[in-house]
Amino acid sequence: MTEPQDDSRPEGAQGHQTRTGRTATGARKAAAKNPRSRAREFALQALYQYQVGGNDPTAIDLFTRDLSGFHKADAVHYDALLHGCIREAAEQDALMEPLLDRSMERISPIERAVLWIGIYEMRHCPDVPWRVVLNEAIELAKEFGGTDGHKYVNGILNSLAPTLRATEVEADRGRKKPAA
Rank of each mutant, 00 (worst) to 15 (best):
E3P: 02
E3R: 07
P4N: 15
P4T: 15
P4G: 13
D6H: 00
R9E: 15
P10F: 11
E11N: 00
G15E: 03
G15K: 03
H16Y: 07
T18C: 04
T20M: 10
G21A: 03
R22P: 07
R22L: 08
R22N: 01
T23K: 13
A24W: 02
T25R: 08
A27H: 04
A27R: 10
R28H: 13
K29L: 15
A30S: 13
A32I: 01
N34F: 09
P35K: 15
R36N: 12
S37F: 10
F42L: 02
A43V: 15
L44G: 09
L44N: 09
Q45D: 15
Y48A: 01
Q49P: 05
Q51T: 15
G53H: 05
G54L: 13
N55T: 12
N55D: 14
P57K: 00
A59L: 10
A59Y: 03
A59C: 04
I60L: 08
L62T: 09
T64A: 03
T64R: 02
R65V: 04
D66I: 02
D66T: 13
G69K: 00
F70C: 00
F70W: 00
K72W: 08
K72H: 07
A73R: 05
A75N: 09
A75D: 15
V76P: 02
V76A: 12
Y78K: 00
A80R: 06
L81N: 06
H83D: 03
H83C: 05
G84Q: 00
G84M: 00
E88C: 01
E88M: 06
A90C: 01
E91P: 02
D93K: 14
L95I: 04
M96V: 07
M96H: 03
M104W: 07
E105R: 08
E111K: 05
E111Q: 08
L115P: 00
W116L: 07
I117N: 03
G118M: 12
Y120V: 04
E121S: 06
M122D: 00
M122I: 06
H124W: 12
C125W: 03
C125G: 10
P126I: 02
D127V: 06
P129K: 01
W130H: 10
V132C: 04
N135V: 14
A137D: 10
I138E: 14
E139L: 15
L140H: 10
A141F: 03
K142M: 14
E143Q: 12
E143G: 08
F144R: 13
G146M: 11
G146L: 11
G146E: 14
T147H: 03
H150Q: 14
H150I: 13
K151V: 12
Y152I: 07
G155V: 01
L160C: 00
L164H: 01
L164V: 03
A166K: 10
E168H: 07
E170Q: 04
A171K: 11
R173L: 12
R175I: 09
K176N: 11
K176I: 06
K177G: 07
A179Y: 06
A179Q: 12
A180I: 08
